[in-house]
Write a protein that binds this DNA or RNA. Structure first.
Lengths: 251, 251
DNA sequence: ACCGTTCGCTAACACCGTTCACTGCTGACC
DNA sequence: GGTCAGCAGTGAACGGTGTTAGCGAACGGT
């Protein structure tokens, strides 16, 4: 991203940046091998032949390290989603959304530990803004925003390019309308508030479904959630008026 | 529940049962005061004037204690939902479902720590069946089943008493159909598989919405999720063909 | 009154996050 | 080229965690 002051990196600084990167990568392998609970500073340090206090030269605390890992994972996930989106053929937003949603679920199910760190209840405090940390946005939040933006942008494009039925603004609960208005104001493009409400509803279904599957809250009924997920994707296609673009998964 | 061998409780056994109850209650107050992470054995013991190892006379491990607390919380939540359901006037299943769903969200938002323990990602292993523990069902699972049963039963009654549009069995993905079939076989009453799929879809929306709100995954757009929740309730009412029974919340 | 079970304690182990004081090394400046 | 500041990394230590082992006291049934 921001690499404008490209050269004035002293040799020391480069080495330091490398170490930071190595720490985060090691943290991630520990996360994968040992699970969210096993992500201990000492474990990370051990795995890279260091001692735990040394990590404090690079991160303020375990929490700080975790936040940076979270941000990196968000970015990685978003990169995957964007790549899938940009490789979609045809590149219509409806089909792109289908593929992106599927890629999201795929990433979640194949990266169980990472997904738990990003979207589990332990992430609550990581996502939470503010704290005593000043109210400047921290890495996980901007990365999380970018992630959500992929979906929001696609739904927005579907609406603008093809349209789908949305509730009239006057039919929305005023309390909801005001919040949607405030949220909309923070977005790059203004959309009718009804579109925002439809997007939120779809987002809840998609996100809720994936979280429930990964965290085992669907196992009381299903042991393989993929068919149900595909059924939900078709239902979302109907809601967004792109049902005709549905294609069964490749495999 | 099962109090058939009512009397042969020796004095010692009664005292022991009392202690078990006191431990679980103390664990719950610690949970509320300190949060999920603060739920430490030593903290529980300290608060009731004991030492941590003493708790091992009553529970095999911290995990074991947590599981029992989870089961109790499930039962308590289910009691609340059943009470709300039984007090509904009129007692039509559609209206009852509306009130029960609202009560669920209310309990979740007013019992943040407890909800996190029950439905957060930390509950993953608690919910998970089997382990090396034999494959007998453990307390959290039976309690969780009872909890889900409240919703399932209401949706079933709505279908049987009034009906709502469901997909034809032949339109379901065979892979999904088989799983729904297997699940259905475990339920007390047999329902068309299309009903099961509609129920699952509704459950995902309801459950997903509440989890996302409580765990802060909706705060990027909303700071008070209630209006959106009500909108979702109305949408679910349409799906289940009981939209006419919607009433705005009492407040 | 005895004896076995139960209960709670202390001590200890291994692990965690975090702080502190101390060592080398390295880069920069005169 | 020599000196000196600053940085990376160390081991020790503090207070916390879950858990195990062994001991003593109290209790219940005979």
């Amino acid at each position: 991203m921001n690499e404008l002051p490209a050269e004035p990196l002293s040799r020391r600084d480069r080495q330091r940046a490398d170490t930071v990167r190595e720490i985060k990568e090691t943290a991630r392998t520990v996360l994968v091998e040992q699970g969210v609970d096993g992500l201990a500073l000492r474990a990370v340090a051990r795995q890279m032949g260091m001692t735990a206090p040394a990590l404090y030269r690079y991160f303020d605390s375990r929490e700080d390290l975790v936040e940076h890992v979270v941000a990196d994972l968000y970015d990685e996930l978003t990169d995957v989603l964007e790549a899938v989106r940009d490789a979609a053929d045809p590149p219509s937003p409806g089909y792109q959304l289908l593929l992106v949603a599927r890629a999201f679920r795929r990433w979640a199910t194949t990266h169980h530990a990472e997904f738990g760190l990003l979207f589990g209840s332990a992430a609550e405090r990581v996502i939470e803004p503010g704290k005593l940390h000043g109210d400047g946005e921290r890495p996980p939040q901007v990365a999380g925003r970018r992630f959500g933006g992929v979906f929001a942008e696609l739904v927005g494009r579907i609406y603008l390019e093809q349209g789908f039925p949305v509730p009239d603004e006057d039919d929305l609960d005023p309390a909801l309308r005001d919040q949607l208005q405030a949220w909309c104001a923070k977005l790059p493009v203004a959309l009718p508030l009804g579109v925002m409400s439809v997007f939120l509803s779809c987002w809840i279904r998609l996100y809720g479904m994936v979280c429930m599957e990964v965290f085992g809250h669907l196992r009381f009924a299903l042991d393989d959630a993929e068919p149900m997920f595909e059924a939900e994707l078709r239902a979302l296609g109907v809601v967004l008026d792109v049902a005709g673009e549905y294609r069964p998964p490749a495999t």
